[in-house]
Amino acid sequence: MQNSAEQIRSLVFDALRAALERPVELSDDTNITEGLGLDSVAVMDFVMEIEDALDISIPLDRIAEVKTVGDLVAAAQDLKGGH
């Protein structure tokens, strides 16, 4: 099953809001570590929610490259819809 970028984006937004437990403005340009103050492990933990929802595994080197919400959406979409 393919997921559209839109579906993946809303998944990411939901997972981030749940991880932060506070209302935040999010866009593709939101910087996940610097902007939202998540440390490296917190980022990997929240990415697990997205991996579960999409039934994918995002390798750690790909996660390390992610800076913004948009990067994460792109990486997830790539792994989900790539083949």
Partner: peptide
Amino acid sequence: GSRLGHAQVTRFRHNDPDDLDNRLRRL
């Protein structure tokens, strides 16, 4: 150690055999 090598690295939920199973299934 995982970063020093060239393998693909993924992590599973702490002490969770079902999550490990899922990860291996995806691979």
